[in-house]
Nucleic acid binder design. Sequence first.
DNA 1: CATGAATGAGGATTCATTCAT
DNA 2: CATGAATGAATCCTCATTCAT
Lengths: 209, 209, 209, 209
Amino acid sequence: MAVAGKRKLRRPEKADANRKGLFQAAAYVVGKHGYANASIGRITERCGLAQGTFYLYFDSRQDLFDQLLPAVGEEMIAYVSKAVHGSRDYFDVERRGLSAFFDYLTKNSGFFRILYESDSVSPEATRTHYENLARKYLKVLERARAEHQIRALTNVERDVLIYVLMGARDYLYRNLVLRGGADETRRNEIVEAFVSILRNGIGPEQTTP
Amino acid sequence: MAVAGKRKLRRPEKADANRKGLFQAAAYVVGKHGYANASIGRITERCGLAQGTFYLYFDSRQDLFDQLLPAVGEEMIAYVSKAVHGSRDYFDVERRGLSAFFDYLTKNSGFFRILYESDSVSPEATRTHYENLARKYLKVLERARAEHQIRALTNVERDVLIYVLMGARDYLYRNLVLRGGADETRRNEIVEAFVSILRNGIGPEQTTP
Amino acid sequence: MAVAGKRKLRRPEKADANRKGLFQAAAYVVGKHGYANASIGRITERCGLAQGTFYLYFDSRQDLFDQLLPAVGEEMIAYVSKAVHGSRDYFDVERRGLSAFFDYLTKNSGFFRILYESDSVSPEATRTHYENLARKYLKVLERARAEHQIRALTNVERDVLIYVLMGARDYLYRNLVLRGGADETRRNEIVEAFVSILRNGIGPEQTTP
Amino acid sequence: MAVAGKRKLRRPEKADANRKGLFQAAAYVVGKHGYANASIGRITERCGLAQGTFYLYFDSRQDLFDQLLPAVGEEMIAYVSKAVHGSRDYFDVERRGLSAFFDYLTKNSGFFRILYESDSVSPEATRTHYENLARKYLKVLERARAEHQIRALTNVERDVLIYVLMGARDYLYRNLVLRGGADETRRNEIVEAFVSILRNGIGPEQTTP
DNA sequence: CATGAATGAGGATTCATTCAT
DNA sequence: CATGAATGAATCCTCATTCAT
């Protein structure tokens, strides 16, 4: 894809590897120490490059930060997307999606720090990430509605729903899974409880007359 | 006690005023520039004190950061609590609560930055804040249930619900209100849509047989 | 002693106690942390006074430092003088003097730090202290010579001797007693060895023809 | 190798020059103003480097202080060693040694300040220096004894002697040469007087019966 | 006399960025 | 392309000293 530029691009593998290495190192360092403590020195040291080399791949520290969250965000989205593939129905998608999200974060504990601090460090990057995510949710919801697996929603309801779902994953992970130290069983309970509330709401029981 | 011409503050009053001034200045500066850029110089300058004076009130910059979120968090909680006072029923509480939350943040735009970055800067402060918040939600839910305004929930469902509600406020504000630039009307629609989903869930319509 | 000034000197005991307390606290703090880290805050805290009070008794931090070594030095000299009282002869004076010096320092471990750093912090104070000390040595030596307990010395020899004796006490204590961790027995050996060298020198034995 | 036009230093040469320059500047500044006032700024300014550059060569200010005395100490020892080379006998070594010591200090007036304050600033560095010095003295004494130029000494006497000699150089220089402002002639008298006392001690004359 | 809050200058250290090699 | 030495601005914290109470 893309028209090949005419410029010399010899040894492109090496260059790509360096660039990728810098991203990975940055993800690690930011995830562990935060943006504020993610110095160029720390990042380049981690991937075995010299400090000056950094500037061959990024214009500035800020430039890296502007690209970091979208990059790691895509990875997370891909991970979850793969996990929900082949779900029975919409609620199964949510079930598996939340579960996969928990998995991903357990394995990539730095993700949240990148996500959270990114808001201040690079609002643009944050916006991009959330847009990517919202697009994904939208597609899933439209399909679910097309197949009558969920009730009809107004446009506003749909928008609200998207961010409620997003916020839920975030807050449930951070507060109940991470801070609560939930084991496998507990995690499943959390997932089921979430799906139950999502499906039924919490309105009062119909009192049969 | 207190003829109190407005002129001169007594010693302890002055101390209180200084401490409070530092908190306010810190909230402003952190909200606007982030913890990383919230230098003692910026903070003290904003409230008209000398840099050294800072250390009469806080042990260190970290000490301030450890106290900041709980302090502003309480303010936010108090604001919302006051707004929901006198609600008709539980769903009215949620309606007014979300609305008041939007209000508060519109007026205190720095709150989210303080909240978000606090997670890395002072995990303890963040934990305290979320605990304060969770306690509040729990009380409201228990009362709602006691008055049969919501359906019976398992313990897990209740815990999940609390964080879904918290996350919803957060994500709805940031993505739809703030980023979406919602006006009064749109805000109300958002609030109503949220309450509707909360009450009914999104399960498919009962197809009458 | 001294003619009473006409100025009001009410409550002089309290004032004297404070002044003395400041000296003691300063000796402790400087001895333990060094002049550089002997802040007014630390000193006044140790003797239970407010920081500002310090300036009622001393013009400045430097003023205190200018008086500190002579003050503690006199104490040391007095301690040693008392110990040598009643000695058999000159070499007994040296023997007991060195021993008492070791004792004093063991009990007042901060003395050396005050002495050593004083040279840079307050050359004047240091000069005064060494002069006090030299005067003492001189008196002892003159008497010893008068009683033919030591051989005749030229003026230069006498001056040299005084500082050799002073230096010996210093270096023997620091290197053999303190750093070497000498016990009672070892200390006595050191003292005797010193007196032996002092008395006889280290010239080669007379080879009897 | 090296054509080496004088113009440009190669990388590693430059590094060596910088390190050396920092040491020299530090020796000057500490000697003149004391450790406490030897700020990185003063030191780097003196050798024409930027403040940050300091940290390419030393881990911290303390790291420099830990290396300073041993470094200048070796220089002093080397200077004296060279001066005593070719002495007639042991007492000639002491004569020339003391004289060279006076010379060295006259030319390097900061040495003593480095030495004295080092005790508090870096005990380890001080220990190292005195050990280096003691080793030197020991070697000289053992040789002198082997050649029967001095009388037999017990082990304790030998240890005591070493530190008496060290202390003598120190105290004689500081009190008689430096403070006393001794000229060439007076210095020689001092040296001779010292050697005389060292050789013969100060015991009373043998009264021939 | 005594207090201690307030000041503001000073200093160690870190780090993004540049540039000669 | 890659390096890493050099820079110097920025920032937290300490502390001697002053002064209103």
